[in-house]
Design a protein around this nucleic acid. Structure first.
Length: 439
DNA sequence: ATAGCCTTGACG
DNA sequence: CGTCAAGGCTAT
């Protein structure tokens, strides 16, 4: 039994959580979802959802709503182009090299994790999550292994027209994520679709980007230097178990909600605020107990706590988005603004996951930023960086919102611009780390 | 219609 | 020649 946790992760289909049987139409999926996707595309099937187009898709219920199942297939990244129009059997398609690269990357990650002695507990297997809908499923899968995933390098710029072109509605908005996932972030393959011509020239693939709702980043670079700075390793070793944090916060929220009387129930916004509170508490708790931090000057830990909190917020939002149907249906009480916020958050989280940034890269980036803050001690610089973080770390935006700071409304409108600016920062950090590693 | 198993065939 | 991701077949 040479099962590593990493292999365990890959055993789960990002669509339904069933066992993966190989790469199918762009990513690792199970046999049934492969067949389902093939039938749907080949036969040009049109489904309709009798519910709210957000049905939970798991192994036991995947047959229930083909509409949502197919939406999820698209959302997690299954490629319409991989279904052959001519139905030719055998052979290889143009995805081959990408599958290979993806495999190599997974191997590399595995090897590094082994070499660095990471504990299995810090990245537990993708056990079938207690999903309430597939958003949560994909988010938990997607987020955990790379808890501090970074945004996509090329911002999606879908217009309403793009949505309309999809025969299945608005996959990237209504069905976003996947977060994470389960794709597991590892399974959110970041294949470049740019060079791939459709093998299925019907309406499905006439506009691949608009159909799938998001581009596949070309910046799929996570080469792994062998000499990782000790500081990074220490930082990662201190990193708390993401799933534990998630479940702890979730339990707290559920208990709190359960203990309230019918009239006192928190609404969606209230829950999100509580979640933000708990997230911050958990990080402060972690920082205070972390041996690593005791050796640092006071201001650096504080900055790190702030950064870690912001960085972790995506997971909170994802939980929120995924749980919105289970928490006494509070989402139905939420206004259109909140619902669109959640949708936007889902979309952002999916983007974050698809970049598949290495944990060490993120750790380095966080440390670099902290040092920069410490060195510069310029409040404006701090503000600007926090602002960029805030855009991506939705919960922080919600905090600002709660504090009647409305500039995040502007941020939503310019999220693509900020996204690209942010990514440049990330890339600079990665570049710096790699330079450092090569010296 | 689904999903598990089978066959095919380009690619390394 | 082995691999493996396509499509095909078929019991359920």
């Amino acid at each position: 039994m040479d099962y590593t946790y990493d292999e365990d992760l890959e055993e789960l289909c990002p669509v339904c959580g069933d066992k993966v049987s190989g790469y199918h139409y762009g990513l690792l999926t199970c046999e049934s979802c492969k067949g389902f996707f093939k039938r749907t595309v080949q036969n040009n099937k049109r489904y309709t959802c009798t519910e709210n187009q957000n049905c939970k898709i798991d192994k036991t219920q995947r047959k229930r709503c083909p509409f949502c199942r197919f939406q999820k297939c698209l959302t997690v990244g299954m490629r319409l182009e991989a279904v052959r129009a001519d139905r030719m059997r055998g052979g290889r398609n143009k995805f081959g090299p990408m599958y290979k690269r993806d495999r190599a990357l997974k191997q590399q990650k595995k090897a590094l994790i082994r070499a660095n002695g990471f504990k299995i507990e810090t990245t537990p297997p993708m056990v079938s999550p207690p999903q309430t809908d597939y958003s949560l499923s994909s988010s938990i899968h997607g987020i955990h292994p790379v808890s501090k995933s970074m945004p996509l390098s090329t911002p999606t710029s879908m217009t309403p027209t793009d949505y309309d072109r999809s025969p299945y509605g608005t996959p990237s908005l209504g069905m976003s994520m996947q977060n994470h996932g389960p794709l597991p972030a590892y399974q959110y393959t970041s294949f470049s679709s740019r060079a791939i011509k459709s093998e299925y020239p019907d309406h499905y693939t006439s506009s691949p980007d608009s159909l799938t709702g998001y581009p596949y980043p070309d910046t799929y670079q996570t080469s792994s230097p062998t000499n990782v700075p000790q500081l990074i390793l220490e930082f990662l070793r201190c990193d708390p178990d993401e799933l534990q944090v998630q479940s702890k916060i979730l339990n707290y929220l559920q208990q709190e909600q359960a203990s309230r009387s019918k009239h006192e129930k928190l609404n969606t916004f209230g829950i999100m605020c509580r979640m933000a509170d708990q997230t911050l508490f958990s990080i402060v708790e972690w920082a205070r107990s972390c041996v690593f931090f005791k050796e640092l000057k006071v201001r650096l830990p504080i900055t790190l706590v702030i950064l870690c909190f912001l960085n972790r917020c995506e997971c909170g939002v994802t939980l929120m988005a995924g749980r919105k149907t289970s928490l006494s249906g509070v989402s139905t009480q939420a206004g259109a603004t909140l619902n669109s916020l959640v949708l936007r958050a889902q979309e952002l989280v999916r983007k974050l996951q698809s970049l598949q940034v290495d944990r060490r890269e993120v750790a380095f980036f966080l440390l670099t930023l902290s040092v920069v803050f410490l060195a510069l001690e310029i409040s404006v610089c701090h503000f600007v960086f926090c602002f960029f973080f805030a855009v991506h770390k939705i919960t922080f935006s919600i905090w600002l919102w709660r504090s009647n700071v409305f500039f995040n409304k502007w941020a939503w409108q310019h999220v693509d611009l900020i996204n690209s600016l942010f990514v440049h920062g990330v890339q600079l950090g990665i570049l710096g780390w790699r330079l450092r590693g090569s010296i």
